[in-house]
């Protein structure tokens, strides 16, 4: 995780466009100023960041489904549940699947675990729009490479 840049996903472990699923890993840093305030003596990942991590995981899945032709923007978060604490240094594994592909929007369900223990879940809706700026698309391509997005699956879908 690069919390300063709001880049929460480190690695794509699996992307299955046929099943419309993704698995990613997100390494929670050992130290960050966020943990100094949240909370003193009891550092835990804020629920909003866990929600954002689930949204980013879903976003990468949708980028694959959409073949990077549109960008998913977060629109609605439902049933966001923080089921347990996530601490500095832990490895968060997030699974997401596409629940519905609508016209101009998509809905995913995501779950975050530490080991086998379920820590968070949510149903997330995205608006799907063309990339508003070519530089943004270039940035997403670079990010995709950084986190190991398997570009070859786009050619075989």
């Amino acid at each position: 995780m690069n919390l300063d840049y709001f880049q929460l996903i480190d690695r794509i472990v699996d992307l299955n466009l046929g099943e419309r699923t993704i698995v990613v890993e997100a390494q929670v840093p050992e130290k960050h100023t966020i943990f100094e305030g949240h909370f003193p003596g009891f550092p835990i990942m804020p629920g909003v960041l866990l929600t954002e991590a689930m949204a980013q995981s879903s976003g990468w899945l949708l980028l694959g489904v959409l073949k990077f032709e549109r960008m998913p923007f977060l629109a609605i978060v439902k049933e966001a549940k923080m089921r347990g604490f996530v601490s500095p240094g832990q490895l968060l594994t997030i699974e997401a699947k596409v629940e519905h592909e609508g016209s101009g929007f998509a809905v995913t369900k995501a779950k975050g675990r530490i080991g086998k223990e379920l820590k968070c879940s949510a149903e997330i809706t995205f608006g799907l729009t063309p990339f508003p700026d070519p530089a943004f698309r270039v940035h997403m391509d670079a990010m995709a490479e950084k986190i190991g997005f398997p570009m070859q699956v786009l050619k075989h879908d």
Binding site: A75, I76, H100, G102, S103, F105, V107, T125, G127
Partner: peptide, 9 residues
């Protein structure tokens, strides 16, 4: 969007 999701389903 929410309504469309519910109607689609």
């Amino acid at each position: 969007l929410d309504i469309a999701f519910a109607i689609d389903k």
